[in-house]
Design a protein around this nucleic acid. Structure first.
Lengths: 111, 111
DNA sequence: GACATTTAAACTACATCATAGAGTAAATGG
DNA sequence: CCATTTACTCTATGATGTAGTTTAAATGTC
């Protein structure tokens, strides 16, 4: 294979959601962002399993935040895309773009 | 889930390659198109397994062509995207696009 | 301060998807 | 009729995707 690990479909979705959320990306917000953008409602187990795998692959890093002063404000595990993760998602999406170029797909045409 | 089956990463790549190839999509050309657009070199087994799965899901149809008058011109199995397949790939790619909107990814910004 | 409630994460088990590798089939050319 | 070429099929296994259940850690109430 050319370079780096390949990404599964849901892995790409999760990486993009983390990217969108910036410094507020943890399990619950990531799931909510995915629902907002894709109408999917990933089960908690699905999400955390994938997050662990992405961390094992070295595409994201996680740090444990401080508990917040609100009922149930348990410490959150924040995720960040690192440079390797950014490269991987960019490569994957550019492949789709090259395949889409010249195709006529309703709502997905590139200028 | 909202509507229709979800697509794996490679399934999307294969569907898009079939779309690009129009009426000349069969195993070998599909593999070549994938290599041209993504630098990946899928093994034959990987490709045909995925094609079979896509047909089982009702996203593509296949018909057997006539043998061609050339050395090794064995009959080809041609694949076509049907309306369900077109809807599925469109939906999947629109999800990516919504996630990408507003993100700054080098080489992937949308106007 | 015991205990219910809320928010969040971890664990377990299983289904689906991805992939390689080896093998089979059907055509032509010498 | 056998080697060569093009193309597809079969089998086994690892990677990804998913649900469901359980655990953890905070606050609010009585």
């Amino acid at each position: 294979m050319s370079a780096g690990p390949s990404l599964g479909e849901f892995e790409q979705v999760v990486l993009l959601a983390i990217l969108r959320l910036g410094d507020n990306a943890y399990g619950v917000t990531i799931g909510a962002e995915i629902t907002a953008c894709t109408s999917r409602e990933p089960a908690p187990g699905a999400l955390y399993t994938t997050l662990d795998r992405l961390e094992d692959k070295g595409l994201v890093t996680s740090r444990l935040g401080d508990p917040t002063p609100q009922r149930g404000g348990r410490a959150k595990r924040y995720f960040t895309l690192n440079s390797k993760g950014l490269a991987a998602i960019t490569r994957a999406q550019q492949s789709y773009r090259r395949l889409l170029e010249g195709c006529e797909l309703p709502g997905l045409n590139y200028a």
